[in-house]
Simulated scan of single mutants.
Amino acid sequence: MRDATVTPNGDRIRWVEVPGKEPVRLYLHGLGSSSPVYYAAAAAHPLLTGHRSLLLDLLGFGISDRPADFSYTLEAHADAVAAAVRAAGVERAEVIGHSLGGAVAIVLAHRHPGLVAKLVLVDSVIDPVDPSRSAIASQTEEEFLAGGRERVEQSAGPFWWATMRLAGPEALHRTAVHRCRGTVPTLREQLHGLDLPRTFLHPEADGEVDGAARLRESGVLVEAVPDCGHNIMIDNPDGFAKAVATALA
């Protein structure tokens, strides 16, 4: 396990690192999850091995520190990841981001263009979301800290619960709120404007991605992965590995 200080207060991001050749691959997890858990099988797949890989936990989640005084905006997450990546001596990483991690990856590429060579978004958030649709963001932070978190955990599936309970409560709530709120310019606008290879993976069963035609017009490769739900890398590791290997070829 490796770590790096990413805030003036000394808060540290941690990651599991797999040695290998360049270019480096950076894996970013979704809300309430953890990269070493969610990506372990996929990163070890024969189609994806051989590269130096950082399975990184965002600040507030998994094995990283959980400061209560961090803003947990998408921009702050991206800047913290950038600090960790630079501390690891990484340049021009191939970034794979799932759900929330994809949103952070877009902002990372937008704000720190020299750090990202290619982008693979895995059923990622790219549009604002109505907070009422989120079990977490629909609560105030006070409600969430006073018992709302426990109600969300009770309704979560066993896999998500196993990693969500590791998240800092402030991190979980504030990140969920900012995930719903999005960014200015929007994540979709930032994605359209990036000048690098970009792929958007989504479950085949969900049908066409909203705005897929415009994404393709801006150079984003939109690919459906069969036999999976939102957690593509867990539900279909072979399909995920094949799609990611193709995107990064």
Results as ranks from 00 to 15, higher is better:
residue 1 M to Y: 02
residue 3 D to A: 10
residue 4 A to F: 09
residue 6 V to E: 09
residue 8 P to K: 07
residue 8 P to Y: 06
residue 12 R to Y: 06
residue 16 V to E: 15
residue 16 V to I: 14
residue 16 V to Q: 15
residue 22 E to A: 15
residue 24 V to G: 15
residue 30 G to Q: 06
residue 32 G to Y: 11
residue 33 S to R: 12
residue 40 A to K: 09
residue 41 A to M: 13
residue 44 A to T: 00
residue 54 L to N: 11
residue 56 L to C: 15
residue 63 I to W: 15
residue 64 S to C: 14
residue 65 D to L: 13
residue 66 R to A: 01
residue 67 P to G: 08
residue 68 A to K: 11
residue 70 F to L: 08
residue 71 S to A: 14
residue 72 Y to W: 10
residue 73 T to Q: 09
residue 75 E to F: 08
residue 76 A to G: 07
residue 77 H to N: 12
residue 83 A to R: 14
residue 86 R to Y: 03
residue 86 R to N: 05
residue 87 A to G: 06
residue 87 A to D: 13
residue 89 G to Y: 03
residue 89 G to W: 00
residue 93 A to Y: 09
residue 93 A to I: 08
residue 94 E to L: 12
residue 95 V to E: 02
residue 100 L to T: 02
residue 100 L to K: 12
residue 102 G to P: 03
residue 106 I to E: 10
residue 108 L to A: 07
residue 112 H to N: 15
residue 117 A to C: 05
residue 119 L to K: 07
residue 123 D to P: 06
residue 125 V to L: 10
residue 130 D to C: 13
residue 135 A to K: 07
residue 136 I to H: 14
residue 136 I to A: 13
residue 140 T to F: 07
residue 144 F to W: 05
residue 145 L to K: 13
residue 147 G to L: 07
residue 147 G to E: 04
residue 150 E to W: 06
residue 152 V to R: 04
residue 153 E to Q: 05
residue 156 A to F: 11
residue 158 P to I: 00
residue 160 W to Q: 02
residue 179 R to D: 04
residue 179 R to N: 02
residue 180 C to T: 14
residue 182 G to M: 11
residue 183 T to W: 01
residue 185 P to W: 11
residue 186 T to I: 15
residue 187 L to H: 09
residue 187 L to V: 11
residue 189 E to V: 12
residue 189 E to F: 10
residue 190 Q to N: 12
residue 191 L to R: 03
residue 192 H to R: 09
residue 193 G to I: 05
residue 195 D to E: 14
residue 196 L to M: 14
residue 210 D to G: 06
residue 211 G to L: 06
residue 211 G to A: 12
residue 215 L to T: 03
residue 215 L to C: 09
residue 221 L to F: 00
residue 226 P to I: 05
residue 230 H to N: 03
residue 233 M to E: 10
residue 236 N to C: 11
residue 238 D to A: 10
residue 239 G to P: 07
residue 239 G to E: 01
residue 240 F to C: 05
residue 241 A to R: 01
residue 242 K to L: 13
residue 245 A to V: 01
residue 246 T to N: 08
residue 248 L to P: 07
residue 248 L to K: 12
